[in-house]
Design a binder for these strands. Structure first.
Lengths: 239, 239
DNA sequence: TTACTGCGACGAACACTGTTCTACGCGACG
DNA sequence: CGTCGCGTAGAACAGTGTTCGTCGCAGTAA
């Protein structure tokens, strides 16, 4: 206890990077940084804490859970989705497509973050912001309220699932796998299938695996919108 | 080593249930039993081994991985999906709906197993069986090959995602949460949203959360099929 | 200035996870 | 009868999320 005691060494050297005094925001930002670099699997409490020069227990003063941390990350990332200035119902299909594509781009850029949103009801402010825009747009386009409401569910699932699958390929690529060779091997496998039991898949293997992620995603959105259009009372929009 | 030695106790008492001599099939079956009872989170190598009266290391002689075990489980479960006797293209929409509903029922009955299929290309025999049937049905209905191929992707994602979300509610229920009260609280939350920024969601909160899982799922399938129909060259099928 | 009080920080530990190493025992085959 | 190989399984390793209890520092009251 005397002043003759030398400085306790480990207490000062504790953090190589004595940055902000550890807040909710810093933790979320750090989590996202790790997410972008290593994927959701790399985001562990220990890893985040280490990046902040501390131990995992310190995080629990600001974040109650790892699940909560992940949802906070998702909320912040959803904030990156930029929406059009205003809804243009006369070209609603194009605008819905634009928003979906923007969202898919943002999520895919953050690896497998959509694994989090697949399992949670979107109630964060930013998630509500996007949902409200699409909801309003569909209603203005003449889609019945109940149809529009359920369509939001479908659109959200579509974006999440597609972004998740896209991120899996990113993971594989960053894991060293040659993605083209991978798809080629699948095509070979399908085409070699016994033609008596799998006539369609074996003969159309090429067709099955054709198209990159964006093409397939845009196709799915298009199918959904075409289907939605048939629910508009006065029939399909005239060209 | 003499015959005077008493029975080695721990060798006989090792397993309370000395069943089959540990094969791939038994391991997969045990995994599915645990999956049904506790969800995918309960399926650990230790838990499966314990159920078989052995240690986790023993499983690795029959299964190379936990991931492989999960995919084997998925494959076997997919085998439970019963397909119609033969494709009836004249009522393709109804038949696709039937198959989708059947698949969704099977998967939902096995908790969150679809979390596995979300992350893997379906190449197991049983998965191919279902896919081939749907592919053939769509082609016979007049859907162009490329459209049908991509539609298979969309249908699979729809089934997987919906079954996964349904299972989350099952998990919550088995976790003791009152699911009705949960949705009611979400409805309250949405309706209390500031009306200036969220006019649509706050006023239509009731509409947003209405409908049970089956209704919403059937709606999504219907939208997809209606959209698909517009891709058929001679236009929508006449009634 | 001093004493206290409350809260954030955090090392250590707990109960888990998937996976690997290595020794062991038993059946089949030469 | 000997030997070889394979399936079994205990122990251990490097991780995981989370909790406990201590410790030091800020702010506040006396």
């Amino acid at each position: 206890m005397s002043s003759a005691m030398p400085e306790i060494p480990w207490h000062k050297a504790r953090k190589a990077d004595p940055r902000q005094p550890l807040s909710r925001d810093v933790i979320v930002e750090t989590g996202i940084r790790i997410l972008d670099a290593e994927g959701l699997g790399g985001v562990t409490m220990r890893r985040v804490a280490q990046e902040l020069g501390t131990g995992p227990a310190s995080l629990y003063a600001h974040v109650s859970n790892k699940d909560e941390l992940c949802e906070l990350m998702l909320e912040r990332i959803t904030g990156e989705v930029v929406l059009p200035e205003r809804a243009e119902p006369e070209r609603w299909k194009e605008q819905v497509t634009e928003v979906c594509l923007a969202a898919q781009r943002v999520f895919t850029a953050h690896r497998d973050i959509t694994l989090v949103s697949l399992g949670s009801v979107p109630i964060g402010p930013n998630q509500l912001r996007v949902t409200e825009f699409l909801f309003d747009l569909l209603l203005r386009a003449g889609v019945p309220a109940q149809v529009a409401a359920w369509a939001l569910d479908a659109l959200g699932q579509l974006i999440d699932t597609d972004a998740y699958e896209a991120s899996l390929y990113v993971n594989r690529i960053s894991g060293g796998t040659d993605i083209d060779a991978y798809f080629e091997s699948i095509k070979d496998y399908l085409s070699r299938l016994p033609a008596d039991r799998f006539p369609r898949m074996s003969s159309l293997a090429e067709t099955l695996i054709s198209g990159d992620g964006d093409q397939r995603f845009l196709f799915k959105v298009d199918v959904l919108l075409r289907g939605l259009e048939t629910y508009i009372p006065q029939g399909p929009t005239r060209e």
